[in-house]
């Protein structure tokens, strides 16, 4: 079932197209990574989905009863409210009953690791604590749809790990769309990827699909030094690329793995590694974006 559908979403500022005809759907319970460099239009897209910005053209459709949680890239809090006062207010405005709001706030703050800091004023919070509180206010009313703008990019490696784990524990029960420019994070938690560049959606699909479409796995043979590599290619005239002390064989049109292994078994001088490598999301992204 579709949780959200964006149709030809467009945002124009003056003559500038910030977002240009972006269409996609989010299936219920899936996690989607919106990937793109800074300035690609990710924040504008999320703001339109969250209802903060009115699209110049196009439409967003989603189940209005499901509730929405939004975490901006740099969430700002009223510094004179405590964490629990804020989440409780947020829950009530989102329609949670007064009785439940307190309980849900406590539980959510415990969940994001702010149990100890619940009654502290948010003005005293560090960047990492604000990010956690931002996540807490986005999920306190138990929305079915979560929109997160760069949820971990402002955090240090430990904080990033912890927040990613929190998000992963929400995966499945909540539909999640998050933007990021850190592709390792995206690879870790995603059913669907959306590549954005200069306001346009340049590639979309499931992670497996996109990988299949763009990355042909290659075979790498590692040598002790580049002389060994060159000598190896002279005696085996395959179409290959030499990079330093390694040679790369194309996945299709070249020799199969069996053939490679047979050749090496008969002539193992200087070889120290043989592996099949499939491209990372990062390489695919660079390829898709670079092709334009």
């Amino acid at each position: 079932m579709n949780m959200l559908e964006a149709r030809r979403l467009t945002k124009r500022y003056g003559g500038e197209l910030a977002v240009d005809q972006v269409s996609f759907t989010l299936e219920e319970g899936t996690a989607t990574a919106l990937i793109g460099p800074n300035g690609a239009g990710k924040t504008t897209t999320l703001s339109m989905l969250a209802g903060l910005l009115k699209p110049t053209e196009g439409s967003v459709e989603w189940d209005a009863h499901s509730g929405i949680g939004f975490l901006p890239q740099h969430p700002q809090f009223f510094p004179w409210l405590t964490a629990i006062e804020f989440t409780e207010m947020a829950a009530k405005i989102s329609g949670v009953e007064a009785k439940l709001a307190r309980k849900q706030s406590e539980r959510t703050l415990e969940f994001v690791g702010l149990g100890q800091a619940m009654n502290k004023k948010t003005g005293t919070f560090s960047g990492g604590m604000k990010q956690r509180l931002g996540l807490a206010q986005a999920i306190v009313h138990q929305p079915k749809l979560l929109l997160l703008d760069e949820p971990v990019s402002a955090l240090d490696p430990t904080g990033r790990r912890e927040v990613m784990d929190l998000l992963k524990s929400l995966q499945g029960q909540t539909t999640i769309l998050y933007s990021t420019h850190i592709l390792n994070d995206a690879e870790e938690m995603t059913d669907q990827v959306l590549f954005m560049q200069r306001g346009k959606l340049v590639e979309q699909g499931s992670l497996a699909e996109v990988k299949k479409r763009h990355a042909n796995p290659q075979i790498r043979i590692g040598f002790d030094n580049s002389e060994h590599a060159a000598r190896f290619l002279q005696s085996n005239p395959w179409q290959a690329e030499v990079k330093g002390a390694s040679i790369w064989l194309p996945a299709s049109g070249g020799p199969s793995m069996e053939e490679v292994l047979r050749v090496i078994a008969s002539d193992p001088a200087g070889v120290n590694a043989v592996e099949r490598q499939s491209a990372t999301l990062e390489e695919i992204f660079l390829k898709v974006v670079g092709a334009r």
């Binding site: 969250a50 903060l52 740099h74 969430p75 700002q76």
Partner: peptide
């Protein structure tokens, strides 16, 4: 300051 954002994003 952006403090309004987390209110405006709600109903």
């Amino acid at each position: 300051s952006g403090t309004a954002t987390l209110l405006y994003v709600r109903p």
